[in-house]
């Protein structure tokens, strides 16, 4: 099955914009909860880093050979960070 080229661009764009934002948010959240710093410091470190992560994710999504790779390459770290965040949150609650 061959899709027209614009579907690839649309798919990459969604991966870059929404997927990238999700990944950046996860980095910000994991830093805020996981870094061994005073709370305000950890929060700000994460938020300031997040924009570099988002920009990097956008570049990645358009640099790789196919839209599938773009999604996979963003989903894998997002899943890992999601798991880490879940651990951090349940660890904090216990």
């Amino acid at each position: 099955m061959r899709l027209p080229p614009w579907t690839g661009i649309l798919s990459r764009s969604i991966a870059a914009i929404l997927g990238g934002y999700l990944l950046a948010s996860l980095v910000a959240a994991c830093c805020a909860l996981g870094l061994a710093l005073p709370r305000a410091e950890a929060v700000m470190t994460g938020a300031m880093l997040a924009f570099a992560v988002h920009a990097g994710a956008v570049i990645y999504a358009f640099a790789v050979r196919s839209a599938w790779r773009a999604w996979a390459g963003l989903a894998l770290p997002a899943a890992l960070l999601g798991g880490l965040l879940w651990l951090l949150q349940s660890g904090g609650a216990a």
């Binding site: 948010s25 910000a28 805020a32 909860l33 929060v43 994460g46 938020a47 997040a50 924009f51 949150q89």
Partner: peptide
């Protein structure tokens, strides 16, 4: 970065659990 507390609020929300007053003071 100047707008990060609006556009990237997730870390602050989790760390302060929505306590804006504590966050603002901090």
């Amino acid at each position: 970065v100047t707008l990060m507390f609006l556009t990237m609020p997730w870390g602050a929300q989790l760390a302060y659990k929505g306590d804006r007053a504590a966050m603002n003071a901090d």
